[in-house]
Design a protein around this nucleic acid. Structure first.
Lengths: 191, 191
DNA sequence: CTCCTTATAGACAGATCTGTCTACCCCTTG
DNA sequence: CAAGGGGTAGACAGATCTGTCTATAAGGAG
């Protein structure tokens, strides 16, 4: 990555650098406060190359979110198999890992949603798809678990996830892991 | 408000127009995507007047959030007195009212937090104070209610509030009122 | 009348924004 | 060799950004 690749990797080196740089800058500073000139300069890419790979800035934003989405889905798919109830805990446990890993600057999807008000924009489509997947994943697990109202419980877990991700950014990230466990317990262990 | 005030109200007319316009535009479109020239044009104010009342754009953003904060606190303070448990429900019920009133574009504080990464910025200070007040208000009610872990429960209610406010924006606002009731029930009615 | 307060119009400065385009270069493959 | 793919530097266009400043005007109070 320090010098030009001598081969032709699947993802061209310049595109990779653009995406990595944008990912970092967008997440750190917000999408609309980071201009493309800054991304280009820090990625060490020519402007024509930028537009070769991304027809517009919004295309880059979409790519940024899609990659995070893809990595997140892959990580959930790679979780070791456990009984449904424990799977729910494991999925929710990823929140704790994310927010305590350092550099937590809020949920990339929620942050982007704040900056893109138009529900029909491509950016919002990515966010919607992500949320639908998350909700459905939880609902499936709850159904397997025999939860009497899996869809409602899933919606509550999604809301709790959002809230705890925000709390980790705006309040105290260190307290979030125990809050996650307590939240799951209260929402699921009712009888 | 349609024409210049002939008197000198407490809040100068131009300042009022700026704040109202900014409140609408910031909330609808996002803070960094709305420039001051647009606010000035739509408020029908001179640029010098803008800077007379707000030394910088960020001062206007702070004023925008402070006003929403103040109105929200006043609304909670005006809620009819009820037993603590019902007070919690009433406070949480304000979420339902807000998101079903129409035009819900996400929580102004969460949206602003996404656009202001620096925790020490004046904007973030307003947001922090708001969240602290909300958390403490809930905690006080829970203590009166005799909740065994009032601080934890309050944190969960805050997280749930955040999450449901986001869900109303990004998912389905109409389903949020029943989710609010279900969430409060599960978090509080445990024994 | 003067002074103070509030306001108007808008030019100006420097920077930055997103996107278009020209000219050129290197490497690999056929 | 030529063609294709990926890349470089950066000028250019038009618009917009935040903030500074000049000139002027109106209303009210003393």
């Amino acid at each position: 990555m320090q010098k030009r690749s001598s081969g032709h990797p699947e993802t061209p080196a310049a595109r990779r650098r653009l995406l990595d740089t944008a990912t970092r800058l967008f997440y750190e500073g917000g999408i609309h406060t980071v201009g493309i000139d800054r991304i280009i300069a820090e990625a060490g890419v020519a402007k024509a190359t930028f537009y070769k790979h991304f027809p517009s800035k919004d295309d880059l934003v979409v790519a940024y979110l899609e990659e995070i989405d893809r990595l997140g889905r892959a990580a959930v798919a790679a979780l070791p198999k456990q009984p449904p109830r424990k799977m729910v805990s494991a999925v929710m446990g990823r929140i704790s890992e994310a927010v305590t890993a350092g550099g937590w600057r809020g949920c990339p999807f929620l942050n982007a949603a704040a900056e893109y008000p138009d529900p029909n924009s491509p950016v919002r489509q990515v966010i919607n798809a992500r949320r639908l997947w998350y909700h459905d994943s939880l609902q499936n697990l709850l159904e397997q678990e025999g939860d009497p109202t899996p869809s409602v419980t899933a919606s509550l877990l999604v809301a709790l996830s959002d809230g705890l991700l925000e709390s980790a950014y705006l309040d105290d990230a260190e307290s979030v892991p125990s809050l996650v466990r307590e939240a799951v317990a209260r929402l699921l262990d009712r009888s």
